Computed example of a mutant assay.
Amino acid sequence: MTRDSDPGRPASSPCMAAEVAPDYFDPLGTDPQQARDVARWRRAERARLLAARLQLSGAMRARIDEAIAAALAAELAARLGDLRGRVVAGYWPIRAEPDLRPMFARLRAAGAILALPVVETRAAPLVFRAWVPEVALVRGHWNILVPPPTARVLVPVVVIAPLVGWDGAGFRLGYGGGYFDRTLAALQPRPLAIGVGYQGARLPTIYPQPHDIRLDAIVTEAGPQIRSTA
């Protein structure tokens, strides 16, 4: 596996649909002006945080990623124990997101079943296709690598979501498309949702809106930051 070190590559995360559908923000009808203000603020913070992490050296990112992976592995073990035969939804890293693919490979070697999120229908919840090294990935929506359509569709017990930003209440700032929120709202039973990102991406608040889904845990290179008791 190789690190995605080229920030100019045309890949995009499944949750970046705001680049295609910028009107997605306020599906439950909050005050329109307030929604526009929050959307504008989020765009500015998203750009600032993305620029900051893209400025990190490859060596620094590698050290941070190792620390995140160790903390995440401990969090999964504490919450779920043995993951053999259980579905863990990871992600393919882009735009200097934490590269946890070595940790995902270790989970697979220990018997976990891995999946990747896929946009099959725009403005709808993600699906999770089985991710195995024997099957080549293909380019999906927004040019991101995903398992092919022939891969099995799985229901994860845990979803690991990359963060652009996060706050102390457990809310995630993503790329603006709302895909992970839609997905977490729709999945039954609800999976354990863990956000992973950089400690420096913490915000006082993301000004959560009715459609924002609180995560069960947030893990950074400094360890678990948010952990629900439910």
Rank of each mutant, 00 (worst) to 15 (best):
V88L: 01
V127Q: 14
G140E: 01
Y179I: 00
I218P: 03
I64C: 15
D31V: 09
A136N: 11
G85R: 04
G90W: 01
A17V: 02
P125N: 03
A39T: 12
P148W: 11
F171P: 02
D167V: 09
A44L: 05
V196S: 13
H141W: 02
E97T: 10
Y175T: 11
G174I: 00
P102Y: 09
V38K: 04
V135T: 15
R63V: 03
P156M: 08
F180L: 14
P191W: 05
V38D: 06
A124E: 15
Q225K: 12
A151L: 06
T30C: 12
A59Q: 03
P191I: 12
R48I: 13
H211L: 10
A78C: 09
A112T: 01
V219S: 11
L187S: 06
L187W: 15
A123E: 09
A52M: 12
G197T: 13
V155H: 07
Y91A: 00
A71C: 05
I113Y: 01
Y207D: 07
G140L: 00
A11S: 05
G176F: 00
Q225N: 02
M16H: 07
D31Y: 05
L76N: 03
Y198M: 09
T30A: 15
N143T: 03
A109H: 13
G168Q: 13
D212G: 11
L187H: 11
D65N: 09
H211K: 08
A222H: 03
D82Y: 03
A112G: 07
A74T: 01
Q33G: 04
V118Y: 04
G223W: 11
R172H: 14
P10E: 02
D23I: 01
G58H: 10
A124M: 14
R79Q: 05
T183G: 12
V157W: 03
R48G: 11
S5N: 10
P32S: 12
A115R: 04
D31L: 04
G168M: 10
R227E: 01
L137H: 01
P102D: 07
L54S: 14
A35N: 11
V38L: 09
Q199R: 14
Y24K: 06
A124C: 10
G178A: 10
L28N: 11
P98G: 08
E75S: 06
N143R: 15
A109P: 00
H211M: 10
A51N: 07
L100G: 03
D31Q: 12
A78P: 02
A110D: 04
R190I: 15
G170V: 02
